[in-house]
Computed example of a mutant assay.
Amino acid sequence: MTNIYQFSVKDIDSNPISMKTFEGKTLLIVNTASECGFTPQLKGLEQLYQQYKNKGFVVLGFPCNQFGKQEPGSEKEIAQFCELNYQVTFPLFSKVDVNGKSSSPLFEYLKSEAKGILGTESIKWNFTKFLVNKEGSVVERFASKDKPESIEKSITAIL
């Protein structure tokens, strides 16, 4: 695989979406959770999305319940939580696993293209972020602790 456009995912309403939908856009793909210490990052992610969406930037949120069972709700509950508490308008997708046998093929690709600390592929926690350029190639991986505002320069550098 040479880019993310060969993958299909399901949106928060379980509708199939081709990643080709986002061709030509700069993407920040994030595994999210509603009950995590990093959940307030949703506010910063939404701010980045609002600030740069007219320049072709999109945040894609993929809820994940693999870490501390911090995303126990249904897709409907997740969408409501994100909208009510953080005014999220960026696209949300159906819950995914990001590690293990049932890991999302998209996240398997992202992890192989941008390794973590010490060259590891596995995702360590919620709110790991992958920056993808307009050609669909993974440019950079950010850890959970990297706040959205701290990665803004990396985003603007490839817009």
Rank of each mutant, 00 (worst) to 15 (best):
I17C: 02
I155K: 10
F67A: 06
L27R: 03
Q70H: 10
Y49D: 15
K101P: 02
G119C: 01
I17Q: 03
T120M: 08
K111A: 04
K153L: 11
N126M: 05
Q70V: 12
Q50F: 05
F127N: 06
S144E: 09
C82P: 08
L110N: 02
S94I: 13
F81M: 06
L110M: 05
F127L: 12
L92T: 08
E149R: 07
F107G: 00
I151C: 07
L45C: 08
L45F: 11
E23Y: 09
F127M: 13
V132N: 13
S102Y: 03
L84P: 07
V59C: 10
N15R: 10
K55L: 10
S18I: 14
G44F: 00
P40C: 02
S102R: 03
G56P: 09
T21C: 10
V88G: 02
E113K: 09
E71H: 06
F127Y: 15
N85Q: 08
K145A: 08
S34K: 04
K76L: 05
L118T: 15
E71V: 10
L118A: 07
W125M: 03
L106H: 04
T26E: 03
I78V: 09
T39Y: 14
K145Y: 06
N54S: 15
G68E: 09
K76H: 05
G61P: 02
L106D: 05
L60S: 03
N85Y: 09
Y109D: 04
E113W: 04
E71C: 04
K147H: 06
W125E: 14
C82I: 13
I151M: 05
K129G: 01
K20C: 09
T89K: 01
N15L: 06
E23W: 03
P63C: 11
T128F: 11
F107W: 09
Y109E: 07
M19D: 03
K129Q: 01
P63A: 07
A143T: 14
F93D: 10
N31L: 02
I117M: 11
P91R: 00
S122N: 12
L27V: 00
N126K: 02
P105V: 13
N133E: 11
G116W: 04
F81L: 11
S154I: 13
Q87Y: 15
L106S: 00
L110H: 01
P105D: 11
E35R: 00
L42P: 07
E83H: 05
F90P: 15
E149I: 10
P40L: 01
Q66V: 07
S14G: 00
A33R: 02
L131D: 14
K145R: 04
E75L: 06
P72G: 04
K153M: 06
E71A: 03
I123A: 03
E108F: 09
A33D: 08
L45N: 11
S102V: 12
